[in-house]
Design a protein around this nucleic acid. Structure first.
Length: 254
DNA sequence: GTTGTTACCTGTACGC
DNA sequence: TGCGTACAGGTAACAA
């Protein structure tokens, strides 16, 4: 599932291959993917030149000579160059001399003209974050997943960061020192994951079809009933904020 | 405004 | 082998 490190990896690969290119045509095979778009992308995109590619949270922003295109990969979205369409190919972009496919089995992803949804997001999780924003009544895990607090953290990195910070996922109203520590480890985890080209726990691959390797360095995520790397206590799995949540009952306290 | 729950969606794993 | 069911989790919409 693409979170900030996976999206960052994809953006770094996209940039040299699409910046400066012109969009020749767009074919939407699954209209659901463009459900958020106020414009028909098959009509407004052809002829436009790609000027930049960037990321905010889990969103990919493609700046055009006029307007912008926003792509969210959802759970299973993939951007792939010059491959044959599959039954899960939802949108096909023909650039000058390149074919870029958007594949998405579960169709949680979305492609839209403009950046309206990005404007509603909190600051990117790799920027300097304010500890006081974490002081809320909700479970800290839910706060981390709330993209309007700050954007880019999903289920994997929320669990990994809370473990490294020694904070139980169900903690509420965390103190300022603990919030500062949490922000520090979020930065650390995200940067390590980017260095490993992200985590491939389900079907995440980059634009060349390669898998990331950070899943080999997960300390709690998907490690239920395995010994904690720090204390040996068995990692537990529960549900917090409606999501599978992994934690060490000894290392992570309120 | 904040918090919590549910729906969307389909491949995979599992039990029978 | 084949079937039914639970589960995975991104955001949006809704209820409290």
């Amino acid at each position: 599932m693409p979170e900030l490190p996976e999206v960052e990896t994809i953006v770094r690969e996209l940039a040299p291959r699409i910046i400066g290119r012109r969009i020749v045509s767009v074919e939407v095979l699954q209209p659901r993917i463009t459900r958020h778009s106020t414009e028909d992308i098959t009509r407004v995109l052809p002829g436009r030149r790609i000027e930049n590619v960037r990321r905010h949270g889990k969103f990919i922003l493609i700046d055009l000579d006029e307007g912008a295109l926003t792509i969210h990969l959802g759970m299973t979205g993939q951007l792939l160059f010059d491959t044959s369409p599959t039954p899960y190919t939802r949108v096909m972009f023909t650039l000058d001399d390149t074919l870029l496919l958007y594949d998405d089995t579960r169709m949680f992803g979305a492609i839209e003209f403009g950046s309206a949804r990005v404007a509603k997001l909190g600051p990117d999780a790799l920027t300097e974050l304010a500890p006081e924003k974490l002081k809320r009544k909700a479970h800290i895990k839910a706060v981390l997943l709330n993209q309007s607090v700050f954007s880019g953290i999903g289920n994997i990195y929320a669990d990994e960061a809370l473990f490294r910070a020694g904070i139980k996922p169900t903690a509420r109203n965390i103190s300022r020192p603990r919030a500062k520590r949490l922000i520090q480890v979020i930065d650390e985890v995200l940067r390590e994951a980017i260095d490993s080209r992200g985590s491939s726990v389900s079907d995440y691959v980059d634009t060349e079809g390669r898998r990331g390797s950070f899943q080999n360095r997960h300390r709690v995520y998907a490690r239920e009933n395995q010994p904690c790397v720090t204390c040996g206590t068995l990692i537990r799995k529960t549900v917090v904020a409606g999501r599978g949540t992994h934690y060490c009952p000894k290392c992570q306290i309120r």
